[in-house]
Amino acid sequence: MRIQVEVNEALQDYVASISLREPEVLKDLRAETSKLPLSLMQISPEQGQFLSLLVKSTGVKKALEIGVFTGYSLIATALALPEGGTVTALDISEEWTAIAREYAARAGVADRIDLRIGDARASLDALLAREGEAGSYDFVFIDADKENYWAYYEAALTLLRPGGLVVVDNVLWHGAVLDPSAQDSETVALRAFNAKVRDDDRVELSVLPVADGLTFALKR
């Protein structure tokens, strides 16, 4: 028998009330981002806290984030890193990442972040071409354009050390992956991505129906 609690708004508020410990700088960033037209691209504070917990509990020292937006997940990750830890962040937008830079400085973690602006595929190729980068990362978070998820995932697996973790956001895509009438490029790409990861024996896999769906793939 499968028991699943329906998480309505009231229950979500309750979860936040008993668990959320949001730093003031992230609360301010979330408030500023909420005024933007694309504010839905920002992860929830509960999700940011969960990523932070993952980073701390798995001893991450070298992280990679593909897709930054205004920087909530990036700063949550950077705050969780130990002394000397770094996170390389890839995004195409100077406009949105300018906000990320400002809040990273306010959070005191700007020196832990290597922010690279440009096409993420090209940035990943540049990383892969550098001696010593392959197999050196502990953690990768992917939350960018869905059509390129598989390319990002493949690059992530090459960059990760054995036992390293890749987390992928939006894999359930507000339920559209189950709607046969949804044939837009993003939904089609996510269906294909999910099927490929399911069959990928290079990783240990778990997909959780939290937020907009999170895939956790541990490199063997």
Rank of each mutant, 00 (worst) to 15 (best):
V7L: 07
V7Q: 13
V7P: 04
A10Y: 11
A10R: 12
A10P: 14
L11M: 13
Q12L: 06
Q12C: 06
D13W: 08
D13H: 03
D13I: 14
Y14R: 14
Y14K: 12
V15T: 13
V15M: 12
A16P: 05
S17I: 07
I18H: 14
L20V: 10
L20M: 04
L20F: 11
R21L: 06
R21S: 08
P23F: 15
E24R: 05
E24F: 10
E24T: 05
V25L: 10
V25Y: 07
L26D: 11
L26M: 12
L26T: 08
L26W: 06
K27D: 09
K27S: 03
D28H: 10
L29C: 01
R30I: 07
R30H: 05
R30K: 09
A31Q: 02
A31T: 02
A31P: 01
A31K: 12
E32G: 03
E32A: 15
E32I: 03
E32Q: 14
E32Y: 05
T33F: 00
T33V: 00
T33A: 01
T33W: 00
K35E: 11
K35A: 09
L36G: 04
L36F: 03
L36K: 11
P37A: 15
P37W: 05
P37D: 05
P37L: 10
P37C: 06
P37T: 12
L38K: 11
L38Y: 13
L38C: 04
L38V: 15
S39D: 14
S39G: 11
L40P: 13
M41E: 05
M41G: 08
M41R: 10
M41N: 09
M41T: 08
M41A: 12
M41V: 15
M41H: 14
M41I: 03
M41F: 09
Q42I: 01
Q42A: 07
Q42K: 02
Q42N: 02
I43G: 00
I43S: 06
I43A: 01
S44N: 02
S44T: 13
S44G: 05
P45W: 02
E46K: 06
Q47V: 11
Q47W: 12
Q47N: 04
G48A: 04
Q49E: 14
Q49L: 09
Q49C: 14
F50G: 11
L51Y: 10
L51C: 03
S52W: 07
S52M: 14
S52E: 02
S52T: 11
S52G: 09
L53G: 09
L53H: 15
L54P: 03
L54E: 14
L54Y: 08
V55M: 07
K56C: 12
K56S: 14
S57E: 10
S57L: 02
T58C: 10
T58Q: 06
G59C: 02
G59D: 04
V60G: 04
V60T: 05
V60W: 03
V60R: 03
K61Y: 09
K62R: 08
K62W: 13
K62S: 13
A63H: 07
A63T: 13
L64S: 13
L64I: 15
L64Q: 11
E65F: 12
I66P: 00
I66D: 00
I66E: 00
I66Y: 00
G67D: 00
